[in-house]
Design a protein around this nucleic acid. Structure first.
Lengths: 264, 264
DNA sequence: ATGCCTTTGTGAACGCGTGCACAAAGATGG
DNA sequence: CCATCTTTGTGCACGCGTTCACAAAGGCAT
């Protein structure tokens, strides 16, 4: 759910649905694992299981990229890795800056998943002068004053914000002004950006809150109706990401707590 | 309109759409900020702006919770904070364990967004004996051996996995076996869990990859029309394959290597 | 070659989420 | 008490995403 972008999927022939784009990295990871095990080809069924999705969905996703499979056989692993990488733009080098080198920023700087996917941490930036020069993940922390020059000098177009909420918008503005057009925001704030700038938000506490909701619902169901629709036998469905279809649905309230009292 | 059997119970059937649940924390955050500023009431339009969503969507979301607004006035901030908190299950205490105290685990342990929302870090767990006892975020790190007892003793039902990918499934199995029914997974792996266990995944590199996709497309749009190599270019099986450490020279351009290693 | 078997690619149906637009509900002022 | 104004709550339509189901395509054995 990127905020920020408001216009058409544009590219008519190349109109890959957003939902599909979001799954491509998933496929890529599964394919990379297969590649390392020197598996030459893989069927949509196998790959779908490995990625935790439905096989029909996977085939349709791939169909947006082109016809890269062979009927009766499956997909060539290496070829598909290349195609998806290219589609995602991972065949080129993406310099990124991380702003806000606290616990989270340091964790991000050390995160192996970046470098291995074409992302190169161009610089770590922090507002604290005491941090300046201190090495984190092998890079010296730079002061915020240098933000603009770092971005222009390195041609950075992707910025990661890991600052406290209060500083996020200001940092965002400076990043955008300096030329950044994609932002990954870890600060718990709604960033406002001009047209043409993409923002993706990752909010750790929101994820937990969503889990708490479902957890509460599960706890409530035990006490009321043990009657569970018990969707078709699905022995060990891998994923469970996002609405697993057979999951909740016919819920029924936990228990009848209907307090009409206003605490205010 | 809700899902499931349409009785017409005076109490609303709890068929809250998943998309709505995912936005409730967003509203809650905006409302909390208003509450701290002692704002008594807020209109759907104002709150929607603060939360970064459409006002109609916000009203519809709230309608699933009940009619908590006053026409012509808006919503009572305090009351709404309470209602959403209750709906999300944040009015109770949720003990959580964090497994894998690396950079990310430590960042999570220090993350303020947890404690302030009803989540209490019951324990930090790591497999490294050298970490045991070492204080992180004010808590002593416990060894993995204690995992089961910690969970049962504290009644933990939510677990956070911040281990390397290789250990994630094993940790997950142990968490589930010990009674955890909700898992927030930061490891880049598809976890397989039995029916009834919720898994939410946060993948830092996937978010960046999605940004890269849009970034690449933006860059391509500038030059107007796709200079994209029409799909036919690549020979089926032979070529494509990873160019070991190929050029990438000029930075831009659809060639270069393919990431060979999974992120740790 | 021919026929069988496997697996892809996709047309079509369905369901969910989103946003518009408006009537109903309540506040407010005269 | 009535008129007017504001804002909610929601019916409806539309578009996207998901899933099913199957014909077409290719491999393989005979």
């Amino acid at each position: 759910m990127a905020t920020g972008r408001t216009h058409r999927p544009a590219t008519r022939s190349r109109g890959i649905p957003e939902a599909t784009v979001a799954r491509l990295p998933l496929y890529l990871r599964a394919l990379t694992a297969l590649s390392e095990r020197s598996v030459p080809t893989v069927s949509s069924e196998e790959l779908a299981t490995a990625a935790g999705v439905n096989s029909a969905k996977l085939r349709k996703d791939f169909s947006y990229l082109g016809s890269y499979g062979t009927r009766g056989v499956g997909y060539d692993v290496e070829y598909l890795v290349y195609q998806i990488s290219r589609e995602l733009g991972l065949t080129q080098d993406w310099p990124v800056v991380i702003v806000g080198i606290g616990n989270l920023g340091a964790a991000l700087a050390n995160y192996g998943g970046f470098a291995s996917r074409g992302f190169r941490v161009a610089a770590l930036i922090d507002a604290d002068p005491a941090m300046a020069g201190k090495p984190v993940a092998g890079l010296p922390v730079r002061h915020t004053d240098e933000l603009e020059s770092i971005i222009t000098d390195n041609g950075v177009s992707i910025g990661v914000i890991a600052t406290p909420a209060g500083a996020a918008q200001q940092v965002c503005d400076r990043l955008v002004a300096a030329g950044v057009t994609s932002i990954l925001n870890f600060a718990p704030t709604v960033l406002s950006v001009p047209e043409g700038v993409d923002v993706r938000k990752v909010d750790l506490s929101i994820e937990l809150q969503i889990l708490a909701f479902h957890e509460q619902r599960k706890a409530g169901e035990e006490t009321t109706s043990a009657q569970e629709p018990a969707a078709a036998a699905q022995p060990r469905s891998g994923a469970a990401v996002r609405t697993p279809a057979g999951g909740r649905a016919a819920g029924k309230g936990p228990d009848g707590d209907v307090p009409a009292v206003m605490p205010a």
